[in-house]
Amino acid sequence: MKELLLRALALFHRQTPYIWDGTCATGIHMIVARGSTEAPGLGRIGVVAQNVSMLIPNSSVAAVDYPATFENYFTSYATGASEFERLVLEHVQACPDTRIALLGYSQGAHAMMDSVCGDGDGEFVLSLGFRQALASQVVAVVGFGDPSFNATAPWSVGTSTGAGLFARKNITACEPYAARIQSWCDEGDVYCDLGNDRAVHGSYFSNYTQEAAQFVKEKFDNSDPVIDLPTTTAPPTETTAPTETVSTSILTPTSTPTETTIPQSAAGSFGPSWMMVASIVGSMMVWMELL
């Protein structure tokens, strides 16, 4: 039995890229974004999708098609955020009765959370259609090792009490969906906690896969699929990110940053100030990857 399960998991991960076939699932439809440098497809976060599929029969999965690179990190994860929106809207139009879950790991979690919350500086704005889709059909959002993690956000779980490289402060856009979000980060993670233990970043799958899958199952079974969105724009709600100390040597780029083209999409766009910060932190990520 164990051997058959391992073969099934191996087959599940070999199907890359993982493209939705257009069939409306009677279970849940999952949109999944892999982590940095993982091969196109579901990546390691796919094991959570596999566990959800076991708990919710007749479910379907689609992989977010984005670069997932450290180089040009800003362009990469911004593309991922836009793709999350495109895939959600595509599915809502085709299957208006199917519930949806979003899953992301590492850079994929960053892209996912920016698609739901905006970029934290108010420069990445959710379209009305996407907000309505999040309110009506997206019942669960699960992240592992998100670089925009902030332990003070209401959906933050795990052992971290700190904040990531892109610690999210403005959570206004995603507050209506807070009960449907869970983002795991553990102490020591180099990306979501600014720690120094690289092994932690890959440990979520052995520690939290079943818990994350059960969270999706519970939201699928119990949550009201419609959220009342505010009719007026509320002042931004900011959370205070825990203070972290980062060596200034890490922040010094080793080469002259190259210009990047900012992608435009229905999800919105990023401004130049955010691109500058992301370019610097992208250099930090490359530096830490070489350690």
Rank of each mutant, 00 (worst) to 15 (best):
Q214W: 01
L103N: 03
A135D: 04
W20R: 09
D228Q: 15
Y177A: 00
Q93T: 11
T261D: 09
I31Q: 03
M1Y: 14
S183E: 12
C117P: 05
M112W: 04
H13F: 10
Y208D: 08
V48I: 15
P57Q: 06
T237E: 11
P253D: 09
G118H: 12
E218H: 02
L251A: 11
P263S: 12
T240D: 11
V138I: 05
F74D: 11
G271W: 10
M54G: 03
C117I: 06
R7Y: 07
G108H: 10
G122M: 03
D228V: 15
L6F: 04
F149M: 03
Q50H: 15
E90L: 09
A101Y: 02
P154W: 12
V64T: 00
G162L: 14
S206Y: 12
D193A: 14
V48M: 02
F70K: 02
E83F: 14
G158Q: 01
F144M: 07
L5C: 01
T232R: 10
F220H: 01
M288L: 15
H110F: 14
V125C: 03
A151D: 06
I280Y: 04
G158A: 11
Q210Y: 10
H110Q: 14
E211N: 13
V61P: 05
V286S: 08
A111L: 12
M112K: 14
I171S: 03
A212G: 04
H91K: 08
I100S: 05
I227K: 15
G202M: 03
G195W: 14
I262Y: 07
A135T: 01
R131H: 02
A78P: 00
Q15E: 08
A25Y: 01
L134E: 05
L42C: 07
S247V: 01
D189F: 12
S160F: 04
L291W: 13
Y177Q: 07
V142F: 00
E289Q: 13
W287G: 02
T79V: 07
S255Y: 12
S36Y: 10
A267N: 12
R86C: 07
L290C: 05
G122Q: 11
V190D: 03
S106P: 03
